[in-house]
Design a protein around this nucleic acid. Sequence first.
DNA 1: CATGAATGAGAGTTCATTCAT
DNA 2: GATGAATGAACTCTCATTCAT
Lengths: 193, 193, 193, 193
Amino acid sequence: MGDKSVQKKQYIIDVAAKVFAEKGYKNVTMKDVVDACDISRGGLYLYYESTTELFIDVMKSQFESREDFTELISDDATAADILLLFLQEEKKELFRKKGNLNRAYYEFYFDLRPSKGDNVYKKEFDSNVKMICKLIEIGVESGEFVCDDPLTAALNIVYVLEGMKTTALTLGVSPDSFDRQILYILQSLGVDA
Amino acid sequence: MGDKSVQKKQYIIDVAAKVFAEKGYKNVTMKDVVDACDISRGGLYLYYESTTELFIDVMKSQFESREDFTELISDDATAADILLLFLQEEKKELFRKKGNLNRAYYEFYFDLRPSKGDNVYKKEFDSNVKMICKLIEIGVESGEFVCDDPLTAALNIVYVLEGMKTTALTLGVSPDSFDRQILYILQSLGVDA
Amino acid sequence: MGDKSVQKKQYIIDVAAKVFAEKGYKNVTMKDVVDACDISRGGLYLYYESTTELFIDVMKSQFESREDFTELISDDATAADILLLFLQEEKKELFRKKGNLNRAYYEFYFDLRPSKGDNVYKKEFDSNVKMICKLIEIGVESGEFVCDDPLTAALNIVYVLEGMKTTALTLGVSPDSFDRQILYILQSLGVDA
Amino acid sequence: MGDKSVQKKQYIIDVAAKVFAEKGYKNVTMKDVVDACDISRGGLYLYYESTTELFIDVMKSQFESREDFTELISDDATAADILLLFLQEEKKELFRKKGNLNRAYYEFYFDLRPSKGDNVYKKEFDSNVKMICKLIEIGVESGEFVCDDPLTAALNIVYVLEGMKTTALTLGVSPDSFDRQILYILQSLGVDA
DNA sequence: CATGAATGAGAGTTCATTCAT
DNA sequence: GATGAATGAACTCTCATTCAT
């Protein structure tokens, strides 16, 4: 597959991302993608056999562009600062215009749990947990945080975020409510806010 | 619609619940239900026009059979006891054999957010928040719990539960992990555990 | 079939007439009639096996109530007077509120041409032709009309009426236009108008 | 849609015309057309969404091939000659083997009266009226015809033709009877025949 | 007689997928 | 590589018609 093909593949991925953001995973047909990309039916099949295959590449493309918060750990910023930064980043993602891919992610993994090889979502999840866990450990050491079980606390934070993500998709969540949860999380770690 | 029809309707609801538990919401076709119920194509349409309509009744039927924990509040049980009971009930629900309807719930509300009249899921969600909030207030009063903002704390608990539900559907959650979250929640409320 | 049944049958015919007037013949299903009559599905089948059978009775019922213009021929009225009366009656029928059954008649006979025994429409058609023919003959004799071939003239009048009926159903016909045709018809018969 | 598709579309139109001629408009299903064309179920939907859409194209195709009688007006032919020619053309059309599309036209417009944009039938109707009207005016000027109100006379002729068309579909009309009407029409215009 | 639940045939429609060009 | 016409499987939905009560 030459350079031109790589470019076309990326083009398809980018357009498909918008389609999935708008309609979720299960509602998207190959036809939808064909129409959105303005290519031929057969043309899409040269690159992707199914929406599943295509969505996996969309996810990879998305997660590649995520910031690594571990790198921000330094003398300039406290653990609490970075945690706050991370949570605010998540907030921004959740409320960003034009929809995010959350719905599509959920629908995809609901369908596919006994999963194909590389579970991108799991990587992201685990890496977040690990990163937060590390932050908490650092915070505990520096006296910012109080926490017996950093791993459970980290998981707790990730679960809260997951919970807000899904609730945002079903019943709706307000930015204020999100802020109050951030505060509550920090307080639970012993931060005076 | 006579008595017999009411029975048949309930029969359909019960069979459909199993189908939805197994396949989620979006994957279920009227034909699936027809086959599972062993009735005729047209027969199902006498009772339900669409899987949407049918699923709404399945949800109603499910939520009707839920226990009301508010009623358990009494002199015999402390707030912490009841909260623990509630959380363990949720755990049981999450890990129950043959699958629960969680996946179907999510898929349904992802599709339908700007929702029709009576949002059963919202009712359940709100009633849980309210109940937990009340428990926390009682616990604070009795000195069991320490909490500035019971409503946010209650929401936090519900979000954690939601997060574990969805994660159970995507990446999996172990009973042990669930238990550790219960502990963490109680600790965050100032309970020595 | 007892008195009660006869009444019920007539009730069905009357209600069905309205349904056919509204929707034509081909668009009406047994279900439509059942719904309009507010009787049971099986109930209707006790009286009628099909919309065809039912429509035949509706037609009979309609034509029974038509006036016989031949009877009006007398010393009091000239042939031209009676012909005018007849044409005005047809006009009234065509423009009557709530729709007439014309559309249904056409759709019915289009479907059924190689016809079942008793063709009610043919009877009506022929009887009109005969009646008009007779009127013209009388008019010719009395000097009111000039006409070589009364039968062809009578047929011509009936065709014009048919043409206006169908055109009313497709493109629309105005009452004024109908009036001008009446005039033209009379002029063609040599009447100064 | 390439050249090949245009050919196929025309093929479908031609086959469908036969089907509509045979069964009328309301009795034709997409499946009937599919079977007659010997293409796949989905194949037809590539070109037409419904029998309605298809029938509209069939009509357009039919009317495109109609002769324009106005062009025949010249020194060589008298108005009466051309009118006669037109009426005989109509006769040929009515009695042509394998059925014409009249029944389908009527059924179509009965269903659709408050009509979509371009009413092909109305165009044909109006153009016929206009053409005949012009012929009569020319005939009156040349002394062939006697007529006070050419427009009404033209409409009269068109109504008679419509009447015979529908009657042909319901009760039947003989060629002789048609001829007698032609004569009557010409006599009404003052032609000695 | 009357009811209305139940059946099943059949039409409509959409898409994943293939394949000749 | 790329196109887009074509296929056929699968689903939705509606009714005429039957039949136990």
